[in-house]
Amino acid sequence: MTETYTAVLDRIVDGETAVLLLEADGTVIDEHVLAVEELPEEGRHGGAVFDVELENGALRGVTYRPSVTEERQRSAQDRFDRLSRRLSEE
């Protein structure tokens, strides 16, 4: 059975192992550990967003989504900026 998830690169351990957080409906439901070399080179950074295909728990495909990655980073920065402004006003 093949399943497709949105995944976010949480971290790279020792420069060799990548930890992806798998999401369903915007909620983290699991993690998948793989070799960094299995990720597209341009997506080998924290916060990178991918489409991931798993078949019976085995990785079948990884597609980097640069536009989604940029949008999430922009959204996170906007939230941080709004919170910073509110804190400085208090």
Rank of each mutant, 00 (worst) to 15 (best):
E16F: 03
E16W: 01
E16Q: 12
E16C: 10
E16V: 15
A18G: 02
A18W: 01
V19T: 09
V19I: 10
V19S: 02
L20W: 07
L20F: 08
L20Q: 06
L20T: 05
L21T: 01
L21D: 06
L21C: 06
L21H: 07
L22M: 07
L22K: 04
L22Y: 03
E23Q: 09
E23D: 05
A24T: 01
D25E: 11
D25L: 12
G26P: 00
G26W: 06
T27C: 05
I29D: 02
D30I: 02
E31N: 13
E31I: 06
E31H: 14
E31G: 10
H32F: 07
H32W: 03
V33C: 08
V33D: 01
L34Y: 01
L34N: 03
L34Q: 05
A35R: 05
A35W: 00
V36H: 00
E37V: 12
E37D: 05
E37P: 01
E38I: 06
E38Y: 06
L39E: 04
P40L: 07
E41R: 12
E42D: 08
E42F: 05
G43N: 10
G43M: 12
G43P: 01
G43W: 07
R44N: 07
R44S: 08
H45T: 01
H45R: 11
H45M: 09
G46H: 09
G46K: 09
G46I: 09
G47K: 04
G47F: 05
A48Y: 00
A48C: 07
A48R: 00
A48N: 00
A48Q: 00
V49F: 02
V49C: 03
V49Y: 01
F50N: 02
V52C: 11
V52D: 02
V52N: 08
E53Y: 08
E53D: 13
E53C: 10
E53W: 10
L54T: 08
L54A: 07
L54M: 09
L54N: 02
E55W: 08
N56T: 03
G57L: 12
G57K: 10
A58R: 13
A58N: 08
L59N: 05
R60H: 12
R60F: 10
R60P: 01
R60T: 11
G61A: 15
G61L: 03
G61R: 10
G61F: 04
V62G: 01
V62S: 03
T63D: 04
T63I: 10
Y64F: 13
R65P: 00
R65G: 04
R65C: 03
R65N: 06
P66Q: 09
S67P: 04
S67T: 11
S67V: 11
V68Q: 09
V68W: 02
V68R: 11
V68I: 13
T69P: 02
T69C: 03
T69I: 04
T69S: 10
E71D: 14
E71K: 15
R72E: 00
Q73F: 11
R74S: 13
R74A: 15
R74I: 12
R74N: 11
S75D: 15
A76D: 05
Q77F: 09
Q77E: 13
R79T: 06
R79C: 06
F80S: 14
D81Y: 13
D81K: 15
R82L: 14
L83F: 15
L83I: 14
S84T: 14
S84N: 12
S84M: 15
R85N: 14
R85C: 13
R86H: 12
L87N: 15
L87G: 12
S88R: 13
E90Y: 13
E90K: 14
E90H: 14
E90V: 13
